[in-house]
Amino acid sequence: MTVLFEKTSGLTDEPTIYCPGCSHGIIQRLVAEVLDELGLMDSTIGVAAVGCSVLSYNYFNCDMLGAAHGRAPASATGIKRVHPGKMVFTYQGDGDLASIGTAEIIHAAVRGEKITAIFVNNAIYGMTGGQMAPTTLLGQKTSTSPDGRKAESAGMPIRMCEMLATLEGAAFVERVAVNTPAHIRSAKQAIRQAFKTQQAGQGFSIVEVLSSCPTNWKLTPVAAMQWVEDQMIPYYPLKNFRTPGEAR
C-alpha cells in the first residue's frame, strides 16, 4: 500500500474537543505542519490561551504552557527571554487576545517581542457559550447581544491587525481565512512567513485567522464557512499589513 498522506508529526494523537465544523482543527494543523516542515517543531515552545483552544497544549507535539486568560503574550515573553534561541508562539482566540488581553498583545508588539501570535477570530466567545466578543459583527446576535450588536452601546468591531500594524515592533502582520481550500493555502503561507520572521529575529509576528463557530453561530458547518466569506471577510479584509523589509 502506498501512503499518500500522513498526519503531521507536529500534532499529537489526542482527539480534539472541537465541535464539528470548527476551524480550530485546520488552524492547529497548519501551525504544526509549518513548524514541522521548517524543522522547528523540536525547538518550539507554545503557549495555550483560555477559550476553546485551552486544551491545545494536549494537541501540539512540543513543550506547552497553559497561560492565564489574555496573558499568553506576557508568558510567551518570559519564555522567549529565557530561551531566545527557541521558537515561541501563542495560540489565542478573540476574547483572549482582543478583549481581556489587549494590553499584553499590544505591548508584546510594541517591544517587538520575537514571538508569533496565532490569533483565531471567530467573532464570538465559544467556550463560554456564545457571548459577544469585541470582534462580533454589527447586528450579529449573541447571547449578550440578543438583538444584534449595536454600535451605540457596544461600539464597532475591533480590527486587531490594522491596529497592530501601526506599531513599529510588529514586523509581520497578516489576516487570513480558512473557509476555502485556496484560503487555507494562503493561510499556511502566512503562518510560515510569521515563523520565519521570528526565526530571523525581525520582531513580533501575528497571523489573524478568520475562523468558524457553527455551534454558537447556530449554522451548519457549510453555512458557517459561507458566513465567513459573506459577513466576516468584507469587514475583516484578508491582506498582509506588514512584512519585514517592506516600506511602510
Binding site: I45, V47, L65, A67, A68, R71, A74, S75, A76, T77, G78, I79, K80, R81, V82, H83, A103, E104, I106, H107, V110, R111
Partner: peptide, 26 residues
C-alpha cells in the same frame, strides 16, 4: 541577565510565570 519593564503588574507576573516555567531564575 534580562530586565523587562512590563506594561503592568498583570503582565509582569505573567512574564514571571513564563520565565519560571522555562526554567529561569526569576
Amino acid at each position: 541577565g534580562v530586565f523587562v519593564q512590563a506594561e503592568s503588574e498583570v503582565a509582569a507576573i505573567n512574564m514571571v510565570y513564563g520565565a519560571a516555567a522555562a526554567g529561569g531564575r526569576v
